[in-house]
């Protein structure tokens, strides 16, 4: 296997045009003894390295592991909640944040919350001689591309973002995950949700209405989809109701204060 350390846009583009995969932590790409002919390593790519955080958000470089970001986050932060639910501590010390958002596997845990937070990806592709950026969204519009940075804004349009995940066991395949963003204006509540595990790409939707009707509306929307089995509908509704409960609890606490 050839191991290529890319330091310039041109070098990255040569790898992309030769279909050389970019390697992050390698936990997926290199697992189970798989040996690509070559890999392109961006860990030393001199654009964004490490974690830069300020009041407006986080910039994450391709060298940052899930574990490093977890340590830098406030433990109450929803991103920390997601990362804590990903794999095990030894896995999180190897897998990178960018590897997790670059890898559009059917059930990927970081994606739903990154979507709700409106994260941007910075990337190199074959069509531009400078680094491009756009909102993170699967499937990627331009392929192939090398991600060199992830920007996660600190402010969000939501009052509350929650994440739920269903696996049969800690080490077995994830079956389903759900990211939900709740906003409220007067009596009208909006719930955006991103669900991984139903099809190849995460399913995104929005419902709005009086807060007591939200659960019913989501349930209706899932039924109307036609292709979601009753088992998955029930699973999603249990997660949604749990999130709505948590939200109500918070709202109560706030009004008490």
């Amino acid at each position: 296997m050839r191991w290529i350390e890319a330091h310039t846009i041109r070098q990255v583009q040569r790898c992309l045009s030769a279909n050389v995969p970019i390697v992050g932590g390698g936990s997926w790409l290199l697992s189970d003894g798989s040996v690509p002919e070559a890999v392109c390593d961006l860990r030393e790519y001199p654009w964004a390295q490490g974690i830069t955080g300020n009041e407006s958000g986080w910039m994450i470089g391709p060298d940052v592991t899930l574990s490093q970001w977890l340590q830098a986050l406030d433990s109450e932060n929803v991103i920390a909640e997601v990362i804590r639910k990903m794999g095990t501590p030894i896995f999180r010390r190897v897998a990178t944040v960018i590897g997790a958002v670059a890898n559009p596997q059917p059930v990927a845990d970081l994606y739903p919350v990154m979507r709700l937070l409106g994260a941007d990806i910075f990337y190199i592709d074959l069509h531009h001689d400078s680094i491009q950026h756009e909102k993170l969204m699967w499937p990627f519009r331009a392929n192939p591309r090398a991600l060199v940075g992830l920007w996660v804004p600190a402010s969000t349009p939501y009052r509350f973002i929650a994440f739920r995940k269903y696996t049969k066991g800690r080490l077995t395949r994830v079956l389903l995950n759900l990211g939900t963003g709740l906003a409220q204006q007067g009596d009208i509540m909006t719930a955006d949700f991103v669900i991984g595990g139903l099809s190849q790409w995460p399913y995104e939707d929005r419902v709005a209405g009086a807060s007591h009707s939200i659960s019913h509306q989501i349930s209706q929307r899932l039924r109307n989809q036609g292709n979601i089995t009753p088992f998955y509908q029930a699973l999603i509704m249990e997660m949604c109701d749990d999130v709505l409960n948590q939200w109500e609890h918070r709202a109560d606490r706030r009004s008490e204060l």
């Binding site: 191991w3 932590g25 390698g26 936990s27 697992s31 189970d32 030894i90 896995f91």
Partner: peptide, 26 residues
């Protein structure tokens, strides 16, 4: 060999990591 079992754990810069997933050249 896939990072799931922890049998191959070693310390890299004092942190336990699965050595089956790490490339020696890195």
């Amino acid at each position: 060999g896939t990072g799931h079992c922890g049998a191959c754990v070693v310390l890299v810069n004092e942190e336990p990591v699965p050595s089956c997933l790490l490339l020696t050249v890195r």
